[in-house]
Nucleic acid binder design. Structure first.
Lengths: 139, 139, 139, 139
DNA sequence: GTGGTCTAGACCACG
DNA sequence: GTGGTCTAGACCACC
């Protein structure tokens, strides 16, 4: 199936960030699996009505995170999962993402219980399917 | 009481953002209630050793968000909060932010337990009085 | 002292890569230490007679490697060393860099002994000063 | 004997580069000597299951580098090697490549021992007959 | 056709 | 002044 990428031009978050996030969602949810091809830079750019460079920038960031890889002349593909970051770095990034999320939740005036509930619900849904399984902590 | 504002000059998050966040947290935690005065721009700037413009910009953003209001010649005060968004809209936004956070966490290969733990830890630190208690109010 | 950046426009290696390498050299050799400012994007671009975007791209890559950091409105600075990558990833990168180096050496028709000797000489020179000291292997 | 060429389609390095490298290594290791014939473009393409264009491009690069030569209607042969660069120039280039490699290794926080070990391991794998033995020849 | 690099120039956010 | 994002469009390498 075609990835249902959507972009909000009016949003505060940069276009390239939105693309990065959506690819991450697709991979995290297992909608895209290792080996699967991503839409070509030009194709996606046309589809989202943004400049190809913007898509390229997004893809480049995902490559550096080890989530996807490029094969010259062929396109981008979801990469085999491999431990790229140290545990400290992973924690730093988790913390950062959590901070961003919580700021938004607080601004939206949600009480802790409701936030926790929302998380639990979503965790349960992706539950046994997606998520981490491997022994992980690479030295 | 004086708000215990603290600024980290070396931090990655902009100074003005740090101020905005701290006011938000103070209000969310109930340390600042509707009608309470905020320190003047000059006072806070002196206290934090930052440029007054920076404080002014932070306050401007908070005004724009409806969290505080300025009363000519008297200073800034915490505004009576009225929900700007409908409950459905708020839920949609929470969902979206949560989705982004969770995808990042999953891609970083963190197991559900660790994600939950990180959230709980941060929620607790937000203060036991933390978050909004009022029932949902639909716009 | 001003960093003696130089660029070879005719070279096969991309401009932005050359910049990345030179910053790495400076940091590895201890000519640039944590906290030190780097030339601003526009300044360096002017100095090297390249487009600012090219410098920006180089700096962005160094940021993602955790070698430097940007402070909004102030510039780029050498970051405190922190373990960003997992051991596997570090080994992968070492292997890659070694492969590139050896290919060049082989093309240049140097025998193993001479290659080894050159390495030893250079290792000895940065010896006790530069190089790795910390316990490193972060989990 | 047939050259034991192997290609990794999933690899990050381009197909044609892999071919170029393998020919170089074969020559460097003395498995192919001046005057020896190389497999024809079509033969090798069939053997590696790649497009003949890819092989042709690899051979073209090797010709350009003076490592092999084509004899009209007969095929490609390993060329008599003559040093293109003066010894000082070769040393300068070796120095430069080494510098880039070492900076990367140091920044990756590898201790001298480990760097040396990695080099030795790779040199050994290059083949015991590996590398050039001839004395330096100044151009 | 694919991705990779580079330029020129615009507009915004931050201090 | 600083960096950050985005566009438009060029040219090259690879398959």
């Amino acid at each position: 199936m075609a990835l249902g990428f959507r972009i909000a031009t009016g949003s505060l978050t940069p276009l390239y960030r939105q693309i990065v996030d959506q690819v991450r969602h697709a991979v995290a949810a297992g909608r895209q699996r290792p080996g699967d091809p991503l839409p070509s830079v030009r194709t996606l750019a046309g589809q989202l009505v943004v400049n190809p460079n913007t898509v390229a920038k997004a893809y480049a960031e995902l490559v550096r995170d080890g989530l996807i890889e490029s094969r010259q002349g062929r396109g981008y593909f979801v990469a085999d999962r491999r431990p790229v970051f140290s545990r400290t770095e992973r924690l730093r990034r988790l913390e950062e993402a959590l901070q961003t999320f919580l700021s938004e939740a607080v601004v939206l005036d949600f009480p802790p219980d409701e936030i926790r509930a929302a998380l639990d619900k979503k965790l349960a849904r992706l539950g046994p399917a997606g998520g981490a399984k491997r022994g992980s902590s690479d030295g």
